[in-house]
Amino acid sequence: MLRFEHIAFLWALAAVPLMVILFFVVRRWKRKALALLGNRATVLKMIPEVSFTRPGLKFLFFLLAYVSVVIGAANPQIGTKVEEGKRMGSDLMILLDVSNSMLAGDLAPNRLENAKRAVSQLIDNLHNDRIGIIIFAGEAYVQLPVTTDYSAAKLFLNNITTDIVPTQGTAIGAAIDMGMKSFDLVNGSGKAMILMTDGENHEDDAVGAARRAAEKDVAIHVIGLGSPEGSPVPIYSNGSPVGFHKDEKGQTVVTKLNEPMCKEISAAGGGIYVRASNANSGLGLIMDQVAKMEKKTYNSKMFKNYEDRFQFFLAFAVLMLVLEFFISSRRNLRLSELNLFEVKKS
């Protein structure tokens, strides 16, 4: 398995096309300037030491050295060993509301980003627990099956937006049912769902779904996002707010936290309800409940002993720079006078 320790350094490779373009622009300019001096054959006899091929070769060596240095700085690593073992942990499924109302700004910067930041902090504090992500609006989708790959979990989390689900709404019940299908309900215990929603405009029997989950020993904890006073829902265009959603009467739509519904779902699911704020996401209280659950033993496979490979790229870069240094930009007149294939007339 290959990975880069500092993958952000690879952005420096974007300069390669610019270097190539600049090289050919300068080369073309030099050719035009040379053509202005007179007949090409005559001019070349006046500058016999000038080489028109060696600068290109030197540039190629420099470019290869630059690319190698960038890749080396990113430090490619190879996982050379797959370690199999047994772990004990709980299975957590995050049910994240991505309806348009989650763009309301009563939690900074908005409800959705506040929730994503809380989940990211949760992932940082996990050790042996497995985590999955389900997103929902009018429909529910599995964004990430339960896994111990926390890096993948963060990657999927960062890509979540309100545009990722085409149908708007708040199908909490569908999300809970999908979470139940994602769990292995045959082996072990210690399963819970963390529902993060504003609870507004729910479209199905969320309470019934939570009750069915609790009957199979899966707790449903709920984090309420938003405020009872509510906040308008912004409209974005090219990443910038351009106004607010309005109803058919032209009035600005205000989305409010449906706290009674959130409490009812958590009660039916045998979990707890916490209302998030800018200062406290509420995940701490819920994780205290998760820590009390019975841990499940499961098999895990992970790449271990990642070995650095930056040294190969840096060595290649040094070699290219040495070659570039020893190649002169001028022609060797003695070598150019040799004509090994010349046929001498008797």
Rank of each mutant, 00 (worst) to 15 (best):
A15L: 15
F24Y: 12
K32N: 05
G38M: 00
N39T: 03
A41S: 10
K45D: 02
S51K: 01
R54S: 01
K58M: 09
F59G: 00
F59N: 00
F61P: 05
F62N: 09
Y66S: 09
G72W: 06
A74H: 09
E83P: 09
E84A: 10
S90M: 02
S90E: 00
S90G: 00
L96K: 06
D97A: 06
V98D: 04
M102W: 05
D106W: 06
N125E: 11
N128G: 07
I133C: 08
Y141M: 02
S151G: 12
A153H: 10
G169K: 06
A171I: 13
I172E: 00
A175W: 07
K181T: 09
T197Q: 06
E200H: 01
G208Q: 01
R212E: 06
R212Y: 05
A214E: 12
G224N: 07
L225K: 03
I235S: 01
Y236S: 02
V254N: 00
L257F: 03
C262T: 03
G270F: 04
Y273F: 14
S277G: 13
S277D: 06
G282K: 13
L285G: 15
M287S: 03
E307R: 13
E307H: 10
R309N: 12
L321H: 05
F326K: 02
F326Q: 01
S328L: 09
